[in-house]
Each structure stands twice: as structure tokens, then as C-alpha cells.
């Protein structure tokens, strides 16, 4: 049984082929990274996996279950969580509330129970809170727990978004450029957390990233994309040395 598999995935916007017949497989427990120059179609692949865009061709499987035909919120229910390149947090809510929304797929109470806030609702809420506090401890967010997201610095918001994705207790975590906009220390922290997520929480990570230091440090395998097509796959070192990758980044040698 394969854990997560993308088969022949493609999408075109009008006449532009943004992603062209990309296939790859992610093994349980590994960190798999997609790299590529700007416009290679990396984020588009994430949006296709999250079913935010309808794929023109191809199929996606999580634990041999095909995702086609589901809606975006069901993808989350199946255990895929993601972060966004440009941070999509709930700005006018506190960090705690943001993380609690991450718990949404574990909701057990009905609307009527919540309207009168029964004992069951109270117990369920306390359980959710305990789960969220574990994430807060893990990512060291305790000091901003009750702050509004809108007022937080960029680096912290990036961590909050990671926390929100972790709060869903995903099987597969999609990280869209986790280090973009972070300073070297923050990037270092991020690398540390990604390794921890993989090793201690046992969550499989699929990542899009530009920072090759971070990529080499945390990834088990790397897929290089250019102009929507896969050009190389292998360990970080192999891919970095691959002639097609060098050409994609630096251009053809004269």
C-alpha cells in the first residue's frame, strides 16, 4: 500500500499548462520536498492536492483512497493539512482560537448541544483545549496564546499557521514555503520543528521550499520541477547535482 501518491497530475489555465503530467509518491514518515524556480507550478500542485483547483488530468491517492470527487473540507477530514505561502490565518481571532479552529475536524458536538452548552459540550471543549495546548507547548507559543493574530510579527504568524495545521492532527502535512520571509534564526527554528514533526509526531511532510540549506537538512527526497514538469527526483544532493536542475536555475551553459 502506498501512503500518498500523485499520478499524472495536470492542470491548464486557459492555454497555459501550469502543471503537466506530474507523478510522485510520498512514503509514510518521510519528508518529501518539491523545488523549482518561480512559476514551476509548485504551489499549484498543493492547490490541486487540496482540491482548491479542479485538476484537468490525473489522480491523487491518500492511503489508496482516491481524492477526486471530494470537496476541499473533506480533504482536511481525511487527514491532509496545509500552510500557505502568504499566510492565511484568521486575523481577527486570537492564536488560541486559530488553533482551536484547527481542531474542527475532531468536532463531536451538535449545534443544539452547543446552543445550550451542555455538559458534553463542555467536556468536548476541554478535550480540544488540551490537544491544542500540546501544540502550543511543542511550538513554544504560550506567550502569544491570547494575542490577536493581526498584531503579531510575520515570523510568529508563520509558526501559528504551522501550529494550526498541526492541531488538525494530520497524517500528511503540506508546507508551502515554510521559510519564506523568515530570518536565518527563524529558519533554523523552522528546520528544527520540521525534523521534530517528522520524527516525534510521526507526521509525513510534503513541502515546497526554496532555501536549499533547509531542504538538504530536513528532506529525505526531493522532486525538481520546471515549467510544470518533473525534471529530477532523488536525494537532496543528487537533485542539486542533476544537470537538468542546474540548467533550469542557471540557464544553459553557453
Amino acid at each position: 500500500m502506498s501512503f500518498f501518491k500523485v499520478d499524472n497530475l495536470g492542470i491548464r489555465f486557459g492555454g497555459v499548462v501550469a502543471v503537466d503530467k506530474v507523478s510522485f509518491e510520498v512514503k509514510r514518515g518521510e519528508c518529501y520536498t518539491i523545488i523549482g524556480p518561480n512559476g514551476a507550478g509548485k504551489t499549484t500542485i498543493f492547490n490541486l492536492i487540496g482540491l482548491l483547483y479542479p485538476a484537468t488530468s490525473g489522480r491523487i491517492f491518500l492511503e489508496d483512497r482516491e481524492l477526486t470527487g471530494f470537496s476541499p473540507h473533506q480533504v482536511a477530514d481525511l487527514g491532509i493539512a496545509r500552510t500557505f505561502q502568504n499566510i492565511e490565518l484568521f486575523e481577527h481571532a486570537t492564536v488560541l482560537q486559530n488553533l482551536l479552529i484547527g481542531r474542527h475536524r475532531h468536532r463531536k458536538t451538535s449545534l443544539w448541544q452547543e446552543l445550550i452548552f451542555t455538559g458534553a459540550t463542555r467536556r468536548a471543549e476541554l478535550a480540544q483545549r488540551e490537544a491544542v495546548e500540546k501544540v502550543i507547548d511543542f511550538l513554544d507559543l504560550a506567550k502569544v496564546r491570547d494575542s490577536l493574530v493581526a498584531g503579531l510579527p510575520y515570523g510568529v504568524r508563520k509558526v501559528v499557521e504551522l501550529g494550526r495545521a498541526l492541531a488538525t492532527e494530520p497524517k500528511l502535512l503540506l508546507l508551502d514555503e515554510p521559510s519564506s520571509g523568515l530570518n536565518p534564526e527563524e529558519t533554523d527554528d523552522m528546520a528544527f520543528w520540521i525534523e521534530d514533526i517528522k520524527r516525534h509526531l510521526g507526521v509525513t511532510v510534503l513541502m515546497v521550499e526554496h532555501d536549499m540549506n533547509l531542504v538538504s537538512r530536513v528532506s529525505d527526497r526531493v522532486l525538481a520541477l520546471n515549467l510544470g514538469s518533473a525534471i529530477a527526483e532523488g536525494t537532496p544532493a543528487e537533485v542539486q547535482a542533476h544537470p537538468a536542475v542546474i540548467e533550469a536555475y542557471l540557464g544553459k551553459a553557453a
Binding site: P72, R82, F84, R105, T168
Partner: peptide, 9 residues
């Protein structure tokens, strides 16, 4: 968009 990615229908 984020709500739906968190499983909110």
C-alpha cells in the same frame, strides 16, 4: 479558503 482547508464545510 483557510477555513475549508481546516475542514470547515
Amino acid at each position: 479558503i483557510s477555513a475549508s482547508c481546516m475542514g470547515v464545510n
